[in-house]
Write a protein that binds this DNA or RNA. Structure first.
Lengths: 140, 140
DNA sequence: CCGCATCCTCTCGGATACTG
DNA sequence: CAGTATCCGAGAGGATGCGG
């Protein structure tokens, strides 16, 4: 687990090579669709929104605001709009009084949250190491 | 591939439940180590740096700047410092004239780039869908 | 060549108050 | 309840020039 063999390394490089045919460094950043899509999907607030919607199938605006701790009205509604436009979530408004709006993941959003979850789990497992590294580095 | 069964959904929820014992919404954001570590590691520029260092075992400052298209001196050196502090990369300076500095991934960075790569591949595969969704949404 | 220091711009995002 | 509108401040980040 601690050592990476040469063959593993080459395997990774192969994958990256495939990737970087698309993330071509000679293209202007705004012409790279992967960068573009990632910048929305891996935004800090967006990821939290998606993760919570992965946990609760349906959430209303103020619940979401409560769980995504620290987010403001403005940013929450911005992110929700963009995430809806990109196809990760759906918005359902019920014309009651007071109005009720429910957000949930689309099928597409469901497939994304799985990927996101893998990364987050890695983060959770490894954050102690990172914090320890930081500590050590601070002493140099 | 297009449908998500109930059991899959529940499985995802279970994982998230495990996660959210740590990303507790009642904690202030600055006390959540996962948020903290993620904000560095999944930063837009940082991910590109790490991916390129996953592709090329060793890169010098100006090469890196070339591949991570659009990044400025300032941001590149900032990110490199933080990524070094967090243990993803190493910096080796050779006291020649002119000086030569080489960056590469640590073992830890290698393990991260694999995870990152999975996410990036998903992005690459699915970015057309997202762009199509955006298009459709724009017409509403 | 590496990358810091400076300056300056400009967007993001927080707070608050208000409306359908 | 679910946002929008407005204002405002902080700070991220770009450009440039210099120094080790």
């Amino acid at each position: 687990m601690e050592t990476v063999t040469e063959s593993q390394r080459v395997g990774t490089a192969k994958k990256l090579e495939k990737m970087f045919g698309h993330i071509d460094y000679r293209n202007p950043p705004e012409l790279c669709p992967v960068r573009d899509v990632m910048s929305v999907a891996s935004d800090q607030w967006s990821t939290l929104i998606i993760l919570w919607l992965g946990y609760f199938p349906v959430l209303r605006f103020n619940k979401l605001k409560k769980y995504v701790y620290g987010i403001s009205n403005k940013v929450l509604s911005q992110r929700l709009k963009v995430l809806e436009a990109d196809g990760y979530i759906t918005r359902n408004a019920y014309p009651e009084v007071p109005i009720r709006v429910e957000y949930s993941l689309t099928e597409f959003g469901q497939s994304y949250v799985k990927k996101l979850l893998e990364l987050t789990e890695w983060m959770q497992e490894n954050s102690p190491k990172v914090l320890a590294n930081r500590e050590k580095y601070g002493l140099l």
